[in-house]
Design a protein around this nucleic acid. Sequence first.
DNA 1: TTTT
DNA 2: TTTT
Lengths: 164, 164, 164, 164
Amino acid sequence: MLNRVILIGRLTRDPELRYTPAGVAVTQFTIAVDRPFSGSNGEREADFIPVVTWRQLAETCANYLRKGRLTAVEGRIQVRNYENNEGKRVYVTEVIADNVRFLESNREGSQRDESYSGGEGYAAGGGGGGYNRPSQQQPSRNSNVDPFKDDGRPIDISEDDLPF
Amino acid sequence: MLNRVILIGRLTRDPELRYTPAGVAVTQFTIAVDRPFSGSNGEREADFIPVVTWRQLAETCANYLRKGRLTAVEGRIQVRNYENNEGKRVYVTEVIADNVRFLESNREGSQRDESYSGGEGYAAGGGGGGYNRPSQQQPSRNSNVDPFKDDGRPIDISEDDLPF
Amino acid sequence: MLNRVILIGRLTRDPELRYTPAGVAVTQFTIAVDRPFSGSNGEREADFIPVVTWRQLAETCANYLRKGRLTAVEGRIQVRNYENNEGKRVYVTEVIADNVRFLESNREGSQRDESYSGGEGYAAGGGGGGYNRPSQQQPSRNSNVDPFKDDGRPIDISEDDLPF
Amino acid sequence: MLNRVILIGRLTRDPELRYTPAGVAVTQFTIAVDRPFSGSNGEREADFIPVVTWRQLAETCANYLRKGRLTAVEGRIQVRNYENNEGKRVYVTEVIADNVRFLESNREGSQRDESYSGGEGYAAGGGGGGYNRPSQQQPSRNSNVDPFKDDGRPIDISEDDLPF
DNA sequence: TTTT
DNA sequence: TTTT
């Protein structure tokens, strides 16, 4: 009924941009969010939270975010599950972001903080601006094909998750 | 740096109240949150999100929440990981709640919505009111004992997660 | 850069649906949110927070919300200011909602919780479905006319606030 | 029942630290939050949102925040009202913060982002650390004295708002 | 596997 | 393994 997450933290690595077979951009990254208290051994711990963005927002994140950057993420928690190759059900929890704010500029001069949003409820136009987008055809929302199926390693994110 | 989640959904089962060896109450339940759009096959899907509460709030949840009840949860995302018995690292994502609102009363008459909060930053007093709490001694925050170790099945939640 | 509000409370009155001269639906209501603590004299207080919804969401709220209903509201804080008839600047703070959840059904039978969202980032289509909408023409986003100017009493909400 | 706000923006001025007659620190500042869209005339607008912090958090904000700094604020909306000297009821809306994150360090060297929280539900200790706190006595929570009454100009914030 |  |  309502599912809202807001995180501020730092990217643990550069973001990874990929495309579904239908040509929809999707970017994944992890942000490290320091916990507000120390662990049992006194050291400061962090939660490493996987974030997924789609379409235009995915391309903007891939272009502007880098490892270590302080970033704000707004979205919803999504829990996917799939059967792994040993027949065991695996649960994957991610934040599907519809708003990402770049809290640190690209260094070299003091550009303004740039920030972009989109995602859930993002206006018409399908896959976004899509410079360097490999495929022009609109992804069929009801397609049942496994997205990423051409992809080398087995990822399990699904175009079905696309809410727009 | 900032980690905030707000969910509204329904309990998939009655909550489970347990105690760490040190006597700290912890309640777990899952809430089903309907997604705001339909899946690829047209049906309405939901995310099933595990929630953990500690201390006084754990006991209140165990006493008042039941399967199917509409509930609001406020907290933070926590990602734990442990090595399973096959030596593989397993990641567990939960919402550690510090505020839970009971949006449906206990039926039979129209009681007011009751709601309780606590958790992160909850005031003094330690393990909470603790009627029917098995152990009176205060849990040592820096204890390294495996919580729940007497417990039948292997749970992997840690007292280290206790932020208060 | 980021502005997010989530409220759960009860309507203090029935919502008020109106239309701008350009035919854009706007609904206002106030929700009472109990404070999580008691005031200095021991009594429970509440904050009375004005909420504004636009377009399709405005019409849905006008149709389904009623005084006293428990309601969740998601949106952003907006601070407007205008000069009153004594030449003094007046500040008005409202929550512009883009997501409203009806946590109590319409009584008589246990209908499903219905919930609707829209607003900021709401898809194409302009003014929404708009049964009983008085004007068919699309509101010009850059119009400078005073909305509500035909309206009896002086309201000061502005079509400029329309983010979609 | 639930009232949560998260803002990211920049201070419009240096924060103002003051003390109630009972010696409780309170800091006020305004943060400017850019709207995610342009106004009717094409220019980028912002909301100017007043923020209030209490006790230890107030002192930390006064010490570390400065005009122009990018800042994240977490709290709740509070609506106060009072009668002004013309006998008219005036409504004041503020965000009572319980968590403030300093997203920009104090320049000169790359200090870590420091961030502090407290407020609602802040642990024991009363009025906070209170270096340079003028009064040592604990504020009586149920006192009915007008806070700030010694203060030059008429402010209307009330110790009754103190939720801890 | 993690960021500062 | 899931709620209405």
